[in-house]
């Protein structure tokens, strides 16, 4: 438990821009506190690079408390690294050994092109949301009273568990097919479980799945890797639920 300092070797993907060819570069970093987060370790490396007049490594990050979904990183062959149920910003260096060599790569998926170094473009996720990840209600505030429709606690809790998705893309990065099924099914499930979302459930699932396919994500072959690496432990049940929703929508005609 007590903190100590370790020395590590890093092999990190460097790529100047979207069109450049990238490669793994080797770095040595000493005196890393085991209390540091993985990103604080990268801050330390960048500070060292800047002091050596070298170009620091670009990586996405923002809240640093595991909720914004901005940080990514494929660490030693796993999305968000070796710990479970955490994002990279919550991964701590106490999970690594003194003298260890750590491999750091960007998310790899056709739908997530690399922008620079470890930064990828995840705007495909936004476009899937724009295709149907909402309830079509205007923001007048003049809806009905919030307690007008009681929702069974069980449904509300399930909807909340699905809604906990942070949209980081670890599911896609972990999948051999680069499938976005876990991400899409989480939003479809959240809204399908709530009475407010049921009205548009049919169109929602058809539109979101169509956009997912158009964006170049692969198909799901039920390996389950996504749910293992998901920092928010989104369940595979959501994929099953989305498949049911999709099938129901696909085989029935519009009323």
């Amino acid at each position: 438990m007590a903190s100590k300092n370790i020395n590590i070797n890093l092999k990190i993907w460097r790529q100047k821009n979207a069109n450049a060819k990238g490669n793994m570069e080797t770095y040595k970093l000493d005196n890393v506190s085991t209390d540091s987060s993985f990103l604080e370790m990268l801050d330390q490396l960048n500070e060292q690079l800047i002091n050596e007049r070298k170009e620091p490594i670009a990586f996405d990050h923002d809240c640093r408390e595991g909720i914004c979904g901005m940080c990514s990183l494929y660490i030693n062959g796993e999305a968000h690294g070796p710990d479970r149920a955490v994002t990279t910003c919550q991964l701590h260096m106490r999970k690594f050994k003194d003298g260890e060599t750590i491999y750091v790569e960007p998310w790899r998926a056709k739908a997530f092109p690399v922008i620079k170094d470890l930064v990828v473009d995840r705007s495909a996720f936004d476009r899937i949301q724009q295709a149907g990840g909402f309830v079509s209600v205007n923001t007048s505030g003049r809806t009905m009273d919030a307690n007008a429709i009681p929702i069974p606690k069980h449904d509300a809790d399930k909807a909340f568990e699905a809604a906990a998705c942070i949209g980081c893309g670890a599911c896609v990065a972990s999948c051999v097919n680069a499938s976005a099924m876990l991400f899409v099914s989480a939003k479809v499930s959240q809204l399908a479980l709530l009475p407010q979302g049921k009205v548009e459930a049919r169109d929602r699932v058809l539109n979101m799945v169509r956009t997912m396919d158009e964006e170049g994500f692969g198909n799901c072959t039920n390996t389950g890797a996504c749910a293992v690496e998901c920092p928010k432990e989104i369940s595979l049940d959501n994929i099953a639920r989305m498949n049911r929703e999709f099938l129901k929508a696909a085989i029935t005609s519009e009323a």
């Binding site: 923001t139 007048s140 809806t143 509300a156 809204l191």
Partner: peptide, 18 residues
Amino acid sequence: DQCVAQGVPFAREYGGLL
């Protein structure tokens, strides 16, 4: 009211109310 209409999953009691 607005957030519930949008599908924000607030915590609920066993009776189904917020």
